[in-house]
Computed example of a mutant assay.
Amino acid sequence: MGTDRLDEVLDAAYYCLTRYGVRRTTMDDIATAMGVSRSAVYQYVRSKDDAFRRLAGRLHEQALRRAREAAASDAPYPDRLHGVLAAKLGLVLQLAGDSPHAAELIDEKTRLFGDICTSFTADLRSLLTGLFTEAGTVAGVGPARAADICIALVVGLESAPDPRGLLPPATDALATGLLGTDARPDDSPHPPHSTP
């Protein structure tokens, strides 16, 4: 199976998703968006549901890759923490910004994507737990609990006004509270965090 052609199918599925949603999109819609026949699309995916599951998997894997890169960097812990949280927030904001229908891809309660979303959150939690295990946490808050606090913060930011603007100071507050050190010493400038 050609991965370039599969990517084209998934890109076309995303295009249709943003316009019609999962339920209203048909294989004919995906084929039309690609400029091919429906039978050509079936060479790469088994069904519309298969196309959307693969699409959700691709988007979540891209976000997880960004989170892993941030966690593994040699940046200070507050910046690494910001990078991991920005990967999750960025995924949500991208999908919500593209279309209200795209939010279906990140809904843990849906039959079609729920397991992908749950697995992504579990992987993110594991990544954060490892980061806090490496960095150490304040007394009374273990690494897994610190990870849960971070995930809860990002989930809250997803529906807040100006979530991108709130993420840097929220990350700094988390780093100060969970790592037990000032995220930014008073004499150091506040470097701009990359935005999701």
Rank of each mutant, 00 (worst) to 15 (best):
A173R: 13
V84C: 01
R164P: 04
T121L: 15
E158K: 06
M1D: 04
G165I: 01
A147E: 11
S47I: 09
I116Q: 10
L179G: 15
S159C: 02
M1K: 03
D186E: 13
R145G: 05
A71M: 01
A139F: 14
R46V: 03
T195R: 10
A170Y: 05
L131H: 04
F113R: 05
F52E: 00
L179E: 14
R66G: 04
A13F: 04
D172P: 12
R53I: 06
L179M: 15
V41M: 08
R184K: 05
R111C: 11
P185V: 00
P185F: 09
G90Y: 12
S194R: 06
L85N: 04
G97L: 09
S126F: 10
I106A: 13
S159Q: 10
G2K: 09
L93K: 05
C16Y: 15
T176M: 12
L105F: 14
A102R: 03
A102V: 10
S47E: 12
A40K: 06
D162A: 08
V92C: 00
D4V: 12
A72P: 05
R23F: 13
I116M: 06
L17N: 05
L128Q: 10
Q62D: 11
H101M: 08
Y44A: 06
S194E: 10
R164A: 09
P168C: 04
K109W: 11
L178F: 07
I151F: 07
K48G: 09
G114Y: 01
I151R: 06
T195K: 08
A175C: 07
D115Y: 04
L127D: 10
D74T: 06
E104N: 05
L127P: 12
E108L: 09
V36L: 09
P161Y: 06
V41Y: 07
R5C: 07
F120E: 05
T137C: 13
T25K: 13
P189K: 02
S119I: 05
R54S: 04
R19T: 11
H190D: 08
T129N: 14
P76G: 05
V141Y: 13
G21S: 07
A51E: 03
T129Y: 11
L131K: 01
R80D: 00
L127M: 06
A175T: 02
I116F: 09
